[in-house]
């Protein structure tokens, strides 16, 4: 059953709202045309121009038609004359004095209201944008109580982006059985070990990623230390094998590039693997973390077997890159 048409409901959307003195929020993109007016706003639309008095109208008409215009000076009201004449104002009758005062007060009020209007504020800020060397259409940054957030969100700004990206990834890969808190404690142990261990002696045969600060700077920036170790041993590619594509049931090896996060993941996995195969020297709960930390130091010093794994992958990738052509040719034949 269709609902009955209710004409009373239609008027509900036409609310009569009084204009607030200060706009509660500032829209980022301002659209003048789409804005709805306030009920008591002095609208100045195309049809709402106030005409001048009779002689002014006649003068305007004369401008348009080219006929002789009436002399405006003749029919000018006393008030207009008094506006220009300061001495005359003092001698004017009390009634007129009062009128002049009231009119100036009303004018002041109206200009104040104008200064507070949204259009005015936006225009002002657009001008500020231009002054700052931006486009007028650029986002108006004023008016946000806490400003617009920076992107990507810096590590201190949001609960969910609290930790450094690498630290977060390593923590998640250390985690077992969903015990994040334990993994975080391990992570803090690792970083503290890197802070307190003596500066690493980098092997020139296995240099760190270019752009890494000198090794003496690393211990006091353990996050950088960790990042340098992981990024330096991260492989550029992985070997994807295609079953039976090489003929005779042999798999065809194809190199495939890895993204940044994937490369890091591989490196972290390798490091954690080799740490878990080591024997711990002490006892207590921080033993795995201790081994991981020692492994990271040995990666930076070029002693770790993780470097060999990376080299092997890269060698295989180099020899297998010819297979990419084979696959491309096969695809073309189809």
């Amino acid at each position: 059953m269709s609902p009955r048409l209710n004409l009373f409901r239609a008027s509900r959307s036409l609310a009569i709202r009084s204009k607030s003195s200060v706009s509660p929020y500032q829209p980022r993109i301002f659209q003048t045309t789409a804005r709805r007016g306030f009920a008591d706003e002095k609208a100045t639309g195309p049809n709402q121009d106030v005409l001048g008095h009779v002689s002014e109208e006649a003068a305007d008409m004369g401008d348009i038609t080219g006929e002789t215009k009436p002399d405006l000076g003749q029919g000018t009201p006393v008030q207009e004359i008094l506006e220009r004449d300061e001495k005359g104002k003092e001698n004017a009758p009390e009634v007129i004095k009062k009128e002049i005062q009231e009119s100036t007060e009303a004018q002041a009020l109206s200009t104040e209201a104008h200064a507070l209007s949204i259009e005015h504020l936006v225009a002002l800020r657009q001008m500020e944008n231009i002054a700052a060397g931006k486009q007028a259409s650029h986002e108006v940054t004023h008016g946000h109580k806490f400003g617009v957030p920076d992107l990507p969100i810096p590590s201190m700004s949001n609960l969910h982006y609290r930790y450094d990206t690498v630290v977060d990834q390593v923590t998640n890969l250390i985690m077992e059985h969903g015990k994040l808190s334990k993994a975080q404690r391990d992570m803090s142990f690792i970083l503290n070990h890197l802070r307190t261990a003596p500066p690493p002696q980098v092997n020139p045969a296995r240099p760190l990623l270019p752009g890494t600060p000198p090794p003496s700077h690393l211990p006091l920036n353990p996050v950088l230390y960790l990042t340098a170790a992981i990024d330096s041993v991260a492989p550029l590619l992985r070997i994807r094998s295609m079953k039976g594509a090489a003929g005779g049931g042999t798999a065809l090896q194809l190199p495939a590039p890895l993204g940044l996060r994937q490369r890091r993941r591989t490196a972290i996995k390798w490091i954690l693997d080799s740490a878990s195969k080591k024997r711990s020297r002490g006892s207590g709960r921080g033993q795995f973390a201790q081994r991981v930390a020692e492994e990271i130091v040995s990666v930076v010093e070029g002693r770790s077997a993780v470097w060999d794994r990376r080299q092997l992958i890269h060698k295989t990738g180099t020899s297998a890159r010819a297979n990419l052509n084979v696959m491309a040719a096969k695809m073309r034949r189809r």
């Binding site: 195969k277 080591k278 024997r279 020297r281 002490g282 006892s283 207590g284």
Partner: peptide, 16 residues
Amino acid sequence: KPAGRPPMPGERKALR
């Protein structure tokens, strides 16, 4: 079997 020399008696506690 983990590689390396096993810790001496008392060494693990001393480290802890």
